[in-house]
């Protein structure tokens, strides 16, 4: 029994039309998805540029040069300075990376190369769970535990802190938050290293540790570095947890880790409940600076990664 011929033909035409429709139809959500990046850049820049334009704010507009070079965040009514905040942010992120990277790499080595499957699976789950903890919870933890720890450390050094709220707390919290990212990516990089190379090293009489450090880590270098870049990117953008333990110092830059500090993100969140007008819009300007800092840092680090890669 053949299908009635005319029926097939109708359906075929419909199918073909539907196919073309689907193709165009699928393009729309794709373009939409791709457009958000553009929207972000456009609209945030638009709002962020406004405080500097006399056409928007008249006499109350902010002086751009003072903004970019200032060492005090806010002097009423319209003097804002962001320079020291950028320095503080980079300082705090750099320190947290300094702390987190060794711990992450060692943990990755441990999980990937030094433990049998069930144990390494357990520890990997531990790291994945840490990665899943939202930043607000780290903020609560930071305010509740980390600040106490910092208070104790401060007394050991004979320093004063504002109840533990300090740059050091920020560094510790950030280190905890980027450790899972760097660890997970390092695990992937380390696992991808050629087993034969490692076996060769052992066969030449090297110890396990020598092999791990001289062969495995060296080969996994670029993957690990990629993880570090990702982690640093996240640290730069981390807002909630940081704003809870940083303290929002008004001036700077300040390199004393026991003093309060301020990051670009904490500036954006501080006092958001009661703001309108210029104080609200200036946060968009800070946002623009944040985006620029992240992009520039990424470019610089990626360039460094390429150069290191050349030497392997």
């Amino acid at each position: 029994m053949k299908f009635p011929i005319f029926k097939i033909w109708d359906v075929k035409k419909k199918n073909r039309f539907f196919d073309k429709l689907t193709y165009t139809g699928l393009l729309i959500p794709t373009i939409l998805s791709a457009s958000f990046v553009v929207l972000i850049i456009l609209f945030i820049t638009e709002r962020g540029v406004a405080p500097f334009l006399p056409s928007q704010y008249g006499d109350l507009s902010v002086n751009f040069l003072r903004f970019m070079t200032g060492t005090t965040w806010y002097i009423s009514p319209n003097i804002y300075g962001i320079f020291f905040i950028v320095i503080n942010t980079l300082y705090v992120v750099f320190l947290s990376a300094l702390l987190a990277v060794p711990v992450s790499v060692f943990t990755a080595l441990f999980i990937a190369k030094m433990t049998p499957k069930p144990i390494s699976g357990f520890f990997q789950t531990v790291v994945e769970l840490l990665a899943a903890i939202p930043s607000i919870v780290f903020g609560v933890f930071g305010l509740g535990v980390i600040t106490d720890v910092v208070k104790k450390i401060a007394t050991v050094f004979g320093m004063q802190t504002a109840g533990g709220i300090s740059a050091l707390s920020t560094v510790l919290v950030l280190a905890i938050m980027i450790m899972p990212t760097v660890t997970l990516l390092s695990i992937t990089a380390i696992k991808a290293v050629n087993r034969d190379m490692e076996n060769n090293s052992l066969a030449l009489g090297a110890t396990k540790i020598q092999t791990l450090f001289k062969v495995t880590l060296v080969s996994a270098k670029s993957g690990i570095f990629a993880g570090i870049i990702l982690g640093i990117g996240r640290a730069l953008g981390e807002a909630t947890a940081v704003s809870m333990v940083a303290g929002n110092a008004g001036t700077g830059p300040d390199f004393n880790i026991f003093n309060t500090t301020r990051t670009l993100t904490s500036t954006m969140l501080l006092g958001l409940k009661e703001t309108t007008g210029l104080d609200y819009d200036i946060r968009f300007s800070v946002g623009v600076v944040l985006i620029i800092v992240i992009i520039v840092t990424n470019l610089l680090l990626n360039a460094a990664k390429k150069r290191i890669g050349k030497f392997s």
Binding site: L39, R234, G237
Partner: peptide
Amino acid sequence: NILRRMVEMLTGVPSIIFGLLGAAV
């Protein structure tokens, strides 16, 4: 490829920037 690259760029954006997008748009 450009579309794909633009979609991938979204993964690196910090949440607070998305918040700004929400507020601005």
